[in-house]
């Protein structure tokens, strides 16, 4: 356990300050905003590779794990690919617990 004398820790200050919970909340949101991720630009080959993998997964009906872009945290979804909607450019994922989730093409970052 670090104590007030441990180097590199902030306990001396943390134990003596007064912060309203509402104030902390704003600062936490602020910190999160600072770390927002921007979507990486996929190059042509990568897009092609993703398409190929997607195709394979649809035809073989195998279970795949998709990494989906999120500004705070990337999301990992594991399931079978159910349907492809070309109009809205999204795919339907059947999750193992019988729920389903629609995912936009442009948000897919990785397929395993």
């Amino acid at each position: 356990m670090p104590n007030k004398l441990t180097h590199g820790h902030n306990l001396m200050w943390e134990s003596s300050r007064m912060m309203l919970p509402e104030h902390k909340e704003i600062l936490q949101q602020h910190q999160q905003k600072l770390n927002l991720k921007t979507k990486p630009q996929l190059d042509e080959q990568e897009v092609q590779c993703l398409e190929q993998q997607l195709n394979e997964a649809i035809h073989s009906g195998s279970t795949v794990t998709l990494v989906i872009f999120g500004p705070i945290e990337h999301l990992k979804l594991t399931g079978k690919i159910g349907m492809v909607d070309h109009q809205l450019r999204q795919i339907k994922i059947l999750l193992p617990n019988d729920e389903l989730e629609w995912v936009k093409f442009k948000d897919i970052m990785q397929i395993e």
């Binding site: 004398l5 590199g8 902030n10 200050w13 902390k24 936490q28 910190q31």
Partner: peptide, 18 residues
């Protein structure tokens, strides 16, 4: 005693409220 001697090793940290 450290404070009186101006000794403090704590860093300025931004994630202190997390």
């Amino acid at each position: 005693s450290n404070i009186a001697n101006g000794i403090d090793y704590s860093p300025v940290t931004t994630h202190t409220h997390n």
